[in-house]
Design a protein around this nucleic acid. Structure first.
Length: 586
RNA sequence: GCCCCGGUAGCUCAGCAGGAUAGAGCAAUCGCCUCCUAAGCGAUAGGUCGGACGUUCGAAUCGUCUCCGGGGCGCCA
């Protein structure tokens, strides 16, 4: 409808160019907007104010001339000048009533569009280290990334969801070592567990599996493990040096094969656990991309070689540095350490270069806001490699800070004191969790009040929206129970009976849905959809309270049934995009 | 010190690709179930949009400065 009105305005402007009121070389961008206030009609344009200066007359005069040249249209009942020079457009009642037909015909497809048609986009999100179960902080990136991906798909993009598995770094060695030490304890060894090792219960579980499958085969005495190892923090040592030494010892005692066995048991167990967790949360990935596979395939070395060729690499203090300051980064970054190991950053350069090589038109990374300093160096690397870093969007999600009983709750994977995403899902339900996470724009710090989220109170708007959906379903059940006939065609033929203010409000709200989906997708803001659904649900509840749907008059009843069925469909489609279910009864 | 995010009603937040009188939920007060689920609806009350300057016909929205709060600045990942 926006486009249709814009075309009418365009024709009027062309006419004004013909008669010399406007210079022929003016190419205005015609903006048609939804009005905020019903008194201002349905749509408004500010072209007259934008062009008044160039036309050499005041905005209202120009608006008047535009109106004189505006072609007739069956969609519009009137167009008028208002305020400082706005042109307000009033839709004919049957124009908005027609949306019911569109919705009933399109069903689940209503709201979808093809503005992204033929374009592929990769969305990488969560990508938490597989060193433990996902916690509540990861949940926000998960819900947000999933909704962004689903929205993009809804507007026609070919979407590829990907999880980058950091299965190659030091943290994974710490995990493997933690598992092994717990295993030794299960074998009966008395171990002083390192401060820096992973302490969660899940480590015990993995160790138990290891012990079940291998009995004491991987056992070494406490003395042989800790002999000559620098002391840990509680004894006045350095916890980092201590854990690194224990890792080296584990490797030496177990040998490559056995160490790898422990390592992979830990990795696979946790990665599968995360995969299941997210799947239960309604999130399915097309690919779980392994960092280790990047290194194994030579992609990392290859990327480093290409960087060298580009001339933006130098050696210093035995390490290899990427001169990212050439591209605006605040300092240069190490890509190969003095011990010969490549850094995480080196892997990430290779990974991002590889993403672009795969041919995606757009690449989206959803990261925690604590990684924001990381963005310039990744862009720098892509530029150095001659790749187009403009294809990359990095969306930073601020932390969700947990509150319990009014107090900040601490989270740390290593200390094992955290609330897992799974716990949260089980306590508040997947629907509430998904909705709650995307209710606020991602740059907003989020206070996640666990008590509030756990209490299934009406404070949580997800119930409000779901209830609107369930209410419509309930009316439909009532219709059947009362053996009232339902004739969709008769309803369609009598839409003109829907003249109540509440009905018009609901119709207008439903026509906005495709615009909301499009906007939310393009600017990556699912919260806009969340707010819209709340508003739509409000119109449904208000209408429900103000009017009876199951009236005796058949024509009106069928028209109203069609209207609320359309509203139900829009609610369901919107909730689906946010990963929230649309229950038929509550 | 540098960088990112936030500062809008008592509380939690929308609005910010400039537009008309700044909106919602919660909390408060008052109403509405012999009637399709009251997990609902209606009404009242509540604001110098942190502050200053600038750009503009027009600024909560854009720019600069400043104050306050949160976070980030590793040869960790």
């Amino acid at each position: 409808m926006k486009n249709a009105i814009a075309q009418l305005v365009q024709q009027a402007l062309d006419a004004l160019k013909q008669d010399g009121t406007l210079d022929a070389d003016i190419v205005p961008t015609i903006k048609i907007e939804r009005t905020r206030d019903k008194q201002h009609g349905d749509f408004a344009s500010n072209v007259a104010m934008m062009l008044a200066k160039k036309a050499g007359c005041n905005p209202r005069e120009l608006a008047q001339k535009i109106l004189q040249h505006l072609p007739q249209s069956a969609d519009l009942v009137k167009a008028e000048i208002a305020g400082p020079g706005f042109i307000n457009f009033f839709l004919a009642a049957d124009t908005s009533q027609r949306v019911i037909e569109q919705i009933l015909a399109a069903g689940e497809a209503y709201g979808r569009s093809d503005i992204g048609k033929g374009k592929s986009v990769q969305v990488e999100f969560v990508s938490a280290n597989p060193t433990g179960p996902l916690h509540v902080g990861h949940g926000r990136g998960a819900a947000y990334g999933a909704s962004v991906a689903d929205l993009l798909e809804a507007v026609g993009f070919d979407v590829h969801r990907e999880y980058y598995v950091n299965d190659a770094g030091r943290q994974m060695d710490i995990l493997a070592t933690s598992v092994w030490l717990r295993y030794l304890e299960l074998c009966g060894e008395e171990i002083s567990f390192p401060v820096n090792a992973y302490k969660g219960d899940y480590v015990w579980d993995i160790a138990a599996t290891l012990h079940r499958e291998n009995a004491d085969e991987l056992r070494h005495s406490r003395e042989s493990v800790f002999f000559g190892i620098p002391v840990d923090e509680p004894e006045g040592g350095d916890k980092e040096i201590h854990i690194d030494a224990v890792i080296d010892r584990a490797r030496a005692l177990l040998g490559d094969k056995q160490y790898r066995q422990v390592f992979e048991l830990g990795l696979n167990t946790i990665r599968e656990d995360i995969r299941r967790d997210l799947e239960e949360f309604g999130i399915v990935y097309q690919d779980w991309y392994s960092e280790h596979s990047l290194m194994h395939s030579g992609a990392v070395d290859n990327a480093i070689e290409r960087l060298k060729m580009s001339g933006h690499v130098y050696e210093e203090n035995g390490a290899l540095w990427f001169k990212s300051t050439d591209f605006g980064d605040e300092k240069d970054r190490v890509i190969v350490r003095d011990n010969g190991q490549t850094t995480y950053f080196a892997s990430d350069i290779a990974y991002h270069a590889e993403k672009l090589e795969r041919g995606f038109d757009r690449v989206i990374d959803v990261w925690g806001a604590d990684h924001h300093g990381y963005v310039p160096r990744v862009r720098a690397a892509l530029q150095a490699l001659g790749d187009d870093d403009k294809k990359l969007d990095v969306l930073l999600v601020q932390f969700a800070i947990l509150y319990r009983g009014g107090e900040k709750a601490q989270m740390s994977t290593r200390s094992g004191e955290f609330v897992t995403l799974r716990e949260l899902r089980h306590e508040v339900g997947n629907d509430a969790a998904r909705f709650f996470y995307v209710m606020r724009k991602c740059e907003q710090h989020m206070d996640f009040d666990l008590d509030l989220a756990k209490s299934q109170s009406s404070d949580n708007p997800v119930y409000y929206i779901q209830y609107a959906h369930a209410r419509v379903c309930s009316v439909q059940r009532q219709l059947e129970e009362k053996n009232l006939p339902r004739d969709i065609g008769r309803g369609q033929a009598n839409l003109s009976l829907l003249t109540e203010t509440h009905e018009q409000d609901l119709l207008t709200a439903m026509t906005k849905f495709p615009e909301i989906v499009e906007k939310a997708a393009i600017i990556h803001e699912p919260h806009q959809l969340a707010h819209y659904l709340r508003e739509l649900a409000n119109f449904v509840h208000t209408y429900y309270n103000a009017h009876t749907f199951l009236v005796d008059e058949e024509n009106l009843r069928d028209a109203r049934m069609n209207l609320i069925e359309a509203a139900r469909q829009v609610l369901a489609n919107g909730l689906r995009l946010l990963g929230v279910s649309a229950p038929e009864s509550m």
